[in-house]
Design a protein around this nucleic acid. Structure first.
Lengths: 256, 256
DNA sequence: CAGGAAAGTGAACGGTGTAAACCGTAAACG
DNA sequence: CGTTTACGGTTTACACCGTTCACTTTCCTG
């Protein structure tokens, strides 16, 4: 092999990597302009022809999967930044900020959100690489926050044996975004409230993004606020002083 | 005017109505075969050319809206049939059966579900005719069941004045599926738990349909069961004998 | 230096939504 | 009755789309 850069990549490999990055960035630019994602549009904006993209991506669906993965990664950075405004020893405050950031991002970048979350995933990419499950990065991050919350409150969660055996078996070797090494020993059941919380969070936001709801209520953010507020006691906070509820409302009202 | 039928429709109008019906039925047939909905496919299967469809529908999006509306209507018939297996003086049992039927329908007819529920609605059809909001019929039916539940348990709901004023204003003249005449006087606040329940129901099912979840957990139905079970106390049932929870599990497990 | 892989091009096929011009038939009207 | 009008359909055409194939260029490597 000829000279490789300090990352261990040859010139060609580095070029290839750069092209991948450009594909993703042009795709995201298209989505943000309201245009729809297409091989031809991406290629022509890059000064190429459509068939050239097949050197990087085997099909249109694979382009979508690639872009979705990168979008999710970038969005997670945004959630992380929002959470960073809260002290590190207050994971619930971080979780609130991250969740609100998730909603804010979804309502602002509806096209990007649709690519990641309103995109059937099961048969297409899941079986190849588990980490290509859409929302892998964001799910991992959110779950990490939830674990930090548990370390503070030790909130209740079912035991594996109390759950449907099928579910228990699934939780023992989960194929969704979770870092089991972060999970305290013998507390696999904590995954269950995580999935419940994720379902309601995802559901509320999807409902709002797709507009299946009175626009005035969406704009007010009340539905989202009540949904998130209901999770406080379940996560071990009575919030007697109303601090978290106040933070929640303030974050929702905060302009971009 | 020439002779009109007993419905007050001329021959021409009746023919036109029949063509509309055929458009919808062929569209649904296409969706159920896994093909995707397109003007050309619908037209050619009807023995026409694509531009002819423009005599009935102004654009592709309008075709989608039309089909979505009819799909929702047909699905609601299915929910109603499932609920009819329960006695009429047990609205909670009916609500459970209808909700499970909703999930079952969504997981079986994922393409039809996507047309109705994963279809941005706000800007397209909402402003023309409020009843063209997707899921109008099903939403109306579900809400009717919830009102019947309230008449039995008088479950708690917030007062309008306790809610965000923006929300209160929206609930006073709601533009989503609800028949205010069925609502008992002074209980407009009941719409609020309805929207919360709808959001979680919709969210859970959408999550399952799009496969953003461990397939084994979807198949077991446990997530859906727990979500629905959590609504029992909020709707005024302690379910001490576990009757409703048993019904819920039985309905989920029941084969088609 | 020769060979070969990688990257990109052009043309082509079958598919899509949509606009325009055109045409026969059936209803409506004087 | 004849004339007019409008409806429901056709052809044609345009601009896109994903995808395949044959071909060229370029650059790395043995």
């Amino acid at each position: 092999m000829t000279q490789t850069s300090e990352q261990g990549l040859t010139r060609r490999e580095r070029q290839r990597e750069a092209t991948y990055a450009e594909i993703v960035s042009t795709s995201r630019a298209l989505l943000r302009e309201g245009a729809d994602l297409s091989l031809r549009a991406v290629a022509s904006r890059m000064g190429m022809t459509a068939p050239a993209l097949y050197r990087y991506v085997a099909s249109y669906q694979e382009l979508v999967d690639l872009v979705a993965f990168e979008i999710d990664k970038a969005a997670t950075d945004e959630f992380r930044a929002a959470a960073a405004a809260q002290p590190d020893d207050d994971p619930m405050a971080q979780l609130i900020c991250a969740s609100v950031a998730f909603r804010r991002w979804a309502l602002r970048e509806t096209a990007e959100f649709s690519v990641v979350f309103a995109n059937p995933v099961a048969a297409s990419a899941c079986h190849r690489r588990p980490e290509f499950i859409t929302a892998w990065t964001s799910g991992l991050y959110m779950h990490g926050l939830l674990i930090k919350v548990w370390h503070e409150t030790h909130f209740d969660h079912p035991d594996l044996d109390d759950l449907d055996p099928v579910v228990a078996a699934a939780l023992r070797e989960p194929l969704f975004p979770v870092d089991v090494t972060e999970l305290p020993e013998g507390h696999l059941g904590m995954l269950w409230p995580f999935m419940q919380a994720w379902a309601t969070l995802y559901g509320t936001v999807t409902l709002e993004v797709f507009g299946h709801m009175d626009p005035r209520i969406i704009e007010s953010g009340s539905l989202f606020a009540s949904m998130l507020g209901e999770w406080l006691p379940r996560l071990g906070y009575d919030d007697a002083d109303g601090r978290y509820r106040a933070l929640l409302l303030a974050e929702i009202a905060r302009p971009e």
